[in-house]
């Protein structure tokens, strides 16, 4: 009985101590973070695998004639038989709601073949329209100097109500194209 009372008061002492709330919160956060790390490790490979499959699918849409492709550090070289059909690369734009991940294909004359939006977190119904073909089709056949919004001297019409998202796509593509074309020219 005496013992029981003592242990009970010891338990209560801990619960009523001033630093107990802090310690409790820290423990909860530690458990939570380690749990997420474990789950993150398990799903990481699967997520990467899903992304690769998605890129392969998109490459096939941009280059229907593709028979093989080779990944060269920063870009993909697309083969149709023994000829080089073009190049493709992934890029990231800073949108209104976060990163916009894209895949772009250019032909052997360095004009845009097609672009596709892999993922975005733009405003649903407005910014997310950047993924629709009415927007992405505008890029087809443009040279690097024409990639940009009309207000910036390019040939792309911004989506009404989603200028920031539209600009993010166009600007990121122009910048990345310049870099990749430079790389391709240097490697030849």
């Amino acid at each position: 009985m005496e013992n029981n009372k003592n242990s009970k008061s010891a338990g209560r002492k801990i619960l009523e101590s001033k630093i107990y709330p802090l310690v409790f919160l820290v423990i909860i956060v530690l458990i939570s973070v380690s749990l997420i790390m474990v789950i993150g490790n398990i799903t990481q490979a699967k997520i990467a695998q899903q992304r690769d499959a998605e890129i392969l699918k998109q490459l096939n849409i941009i280059f229907p004639e593709m028979t093989d492709f080779k990944y060269l550090d920063k870009y993909y070289e697309i083969y149709a038989g023994n000829d080089i059909a073009g190049f493709a690369f992934t890029l990231k734009g800073k949108g209104y709601g976060g990163d916009i991940n894209m895949l772009a294909g250019i032909d052997s004359n360095y004009n845009v073949k097609a672009i596709s939006i892999l993922s975005n977190t733009e405003t649903p119904g407005l910014g997310t329209k950047i993924a629709e073909s009415s927007f992405t089709d505008q890029f087809k056949g443009l040279g690097q100097q024409d990639v940009g919004l009309t207000i910036d001297g390019g040939k792309i019409d911004a989506i009404t109500g989603a200028t920031i998202s539209s600009k993010a796509v166009a600007d990121a593509l122009r910048g990345q194209m310049e870099e990749i074309i430079e790389l391709i020219k240097n490697s030849n």
Binding site: L35, I36, I39, G40, T43, K46, I47, Q50
Partner: peptide, 8 residues
Amino acid sequence: ILSLVFEA
């Protein structure tokens, strides 16, 4: 956890 599992 849910969003990682959905994504994967």
